[in-house]
């Protein structure tokens, strides 16, 4: 009973938090040269938004949302997200193993290089990629890299490369840190003493042990990827989900459509959290058995 009540309170709070955040602009009415705080219009806005969420059977419900080309663009954006996620995981594992296999002097320098990329703004990367593609086209005349998404084009390669560039370094930094910590463990020393080679220790033993940590870290990666994808789609003028979303915003769509869009955007993160939850449960269960 108590649990039910608590989850009820939670749901109400989440809903009201959501409404609060998105009706916040109504608090500040603007006068000539001061910002007025106006709680009455805020309260009205809250009530209005709440009502528009509840009135499901109204014909104007989700009107704009149905007009927009949602399924196609959502599929496209999610393809970019999934593609870059796969690219990132694959490249990060390969490169981190290569870094760990190099001599210590070289790998230290490489680690510093990776840390440098932490500070690079995402916009700089996007613009440099654009510049690179355009100069490639200008100098060689090759047009195999599609950049802009105009005339119904759906480029995949360049957006995925651009989007995954910075998150790759983020994951790489994480993996290198975790592997370095893992190498101090006793079992690595034991495996070394038994004469197992460095590569097979890394691939077989360490990788298996850091795999859950990798899954847990993926939530952050997806988060960064999502916010990069918005920028890239806007800058490259790609007809993805972001464009539909912005159209909705600037055309003054109703609140229910906004909520639907935001929920769709949150799905990848929810999937990642569910995955992390299952993994952690699986591991805990295993430990309980082994004890």
């Amino acid at each position: 009973m108590k649990r039910l009540l608590r989850s009820l309170i939670r749901i109400i709070l989440i809903l009201f938090g959501f409404l609060f955040i998105f009706t916040l602009p109504l608090v500040f009415g603007s006068a000539e040269d001061t910002v007025l705080v106006d709680f009455r219009s805020f309260w009205d806005g809250l009530k209005f938004n709440f009502q528009s969420l509840i009135q499901m059977n109204d014909s104007s419900y989700l009107e704009l949302f149905k007009e927009l080309d949602i399924t196609n663009s959502y599929q496209y954006t999610m393809t970019i997200l999934g593609g870059s996620l796969i690219v990132i995981i694959f490249l990060a594992i390969v490169i981190s193993i290569l870094i760990m296999l190099t001599p210590e002097k070289v790998s230290n320098r490489l680690k510093n290089g990776i840390n440098f990329f932490e500070a690079v703004p995402d916009l700089l990367v996007i613009l440099l990629f654009m510049l690179f593609v355009i100069t490639l086209y200008k100098t060689t005349g090759l047009k195999f890299l599609q950049l802009y998404g105009v005339f119904g084009n759906k480029p995949y390669f360049v957006p995925i490369m651009t989007v995954s560039f910075l998150p790759l370094f983020l994951l790489l930094q994480f993996l290198v840190k975790v592997i370095t910590e893992e190498q101090n463990q006793q079992y690595v020393l034991y495996a070394k003493a038994k004469g197992i080679g460095r590569l097979s220790i890394l691939l077989v033993h360490i990788m298996r042990n850091i795999f859950p940590l990798l899954i847990l870290q993926l939530r952050t990666i997806v988060w960064v990827l999502l916010s990069n994808i918005y920028l890239v789609e806007y800058v490259f003028n790609i007809n993805g989900f972001t464009q539909q979303f912005l159209k909705l915003l600037f055309m003054g769509g109703d609140f229910a459509s906004l909520v639907a869009c935001l929920l769709m955007l949150a799905i990848p993160l929810l999937v990642m959290e569910a995955l992390a939850w299952f993994i952690s449960k699986f591991i805990k269960g295993k430990e309980a058995v082994s004890i």
Partner: peptide, 8 residues
């Protein structure tokens, strides 16, 4: 919970 939206 109130600011859960910000997490997603």
């Amino acid at each position: 919970d109130f600011f859960l939206t910000m997490r997603y």
